[in-house]
C-alpha cells in the first residue's frame, strides 16, 4: 500500500465517518462540526486527485460560506434544545433502502463500465492550467455564474428584508 493510497483511505474514512455522524447525531451543532470535518475530508480528496485549487476553493466556499450560513440558520431557528431531540420514526426506516438501491445500481452496473487507468501518481500542479482555462475557455460560464450569484444574493436579501419589515410592522401593532 503506497502512501498516497493510505492517505486516500484515511480521508475517505474521515469523510464518510463524519457523514455518518451527521446521519445519527441529534444535536445540530454536532452535525455542523461533523459536516466541517466531512467537507475538509472532501477537500483533501480533491487535493489527492491533483485538484489543489479546488481543494482550497472547497474550504473557502463551503466552510467559509456555506457552513457559516448554516450556523446562522441554526442560531436563527434555535428554540430549545429539546426540540432538536428527534428520532428516526420506524415508518421512515424503509427510506434507508432507497439510497442502498442507488448504491447497488452503481456498484453492480456502473463500476464495470469504468475505464481502468493506471498512471503513476503525478505531483504536477494544475494551478496555471486552471487559471488559463478560467480566463479563456470557461470565461462565459463564469460570467454567467457570477450573474447567477448576484441574482441569488438579491433574492435572498429581498426575502430577508421582507422578514425585517414584517417584524417592524408587528412591533408597531404591539
Amino acid at each position: 500500500m503506497s502512501n498516497i493510497l493510505f492517505f486516500f483511505i484515511f480521508f475517505s474514512v474521515q469523510t464518510i465517518g463524519s457523514a455518518v455522524v451527521i446521519l445519527f447525531t441529534r444535536n445540530v451543532m454536532y452535525a455542523v462540526t461533523a459536516l466541517l470535518s466531512s467537507l475538509l475530508g472532501v477537500a483533501a480528496l480533491f487535493v489527492l486527485a491533483g485538484a489543489d485549487v479546488l481543494g482550497v476553493i472547497q474550504i473557502i466556499v463551503y466552510i467559509g460560506g456555506v457552513l457559516v450560513l448554516t450556523l446562522f440558520g441554526v442560531m436563527y431557528t434555535y428554540q430549545s434544545p429539546k426540540r432538536y431531540q428527534e428520532s428516526i420514526p420506524h415508518k421512515k426506516s424503509v427510506f434507508i433502502l432507497i439510497p442502498l438501491l442507488f448504491v447497488l445500481v452503481l456498484l453492480v452496473q456502473a463500476l464495470p463500465l469504468l475505464p481502468m487507468i493506471d498512471d503513476p501518481y503525478q505531483h504536477a500542479s494544475k494551478v496555471e492550467v486552471t487559471g488559463m482555462l478560467w480566463l479563456t475557455e470557461y470565461l462565459p460560464i463564469f460570467e454567467w455564474i457570477g450573474f447567477l450569484l448576484l441574482v441569488v444574493l438579491i433574492g435572498a436579501g429581498w426575502i430577508g428584508s421582507t422578514l425585517v419589515q414584517e417584524d417592524k410592522s408587528k412591533g408597531e401593532q404591539v
Partner: peptide, 25 residues
C-alpha cells in the same frame, strides 16, 4: 504548495468557524 496565498486565506474561514463554535457552545 502552489496555492499558498489562497490556502492562507482559507485558514481565516476555518478560524471563523472556531470562533463561532466557541461562542455558541
Amino acid at each position: 504548495i502552489n496555492v499558498g496565498v489562497f490556502f492562507l486565506l482559507s485558514i481565516v474561514s476555518i478560524d471563523v468557524l472556531g470562533v463561532f463554535i466557541a461562542g455558541w457552545s
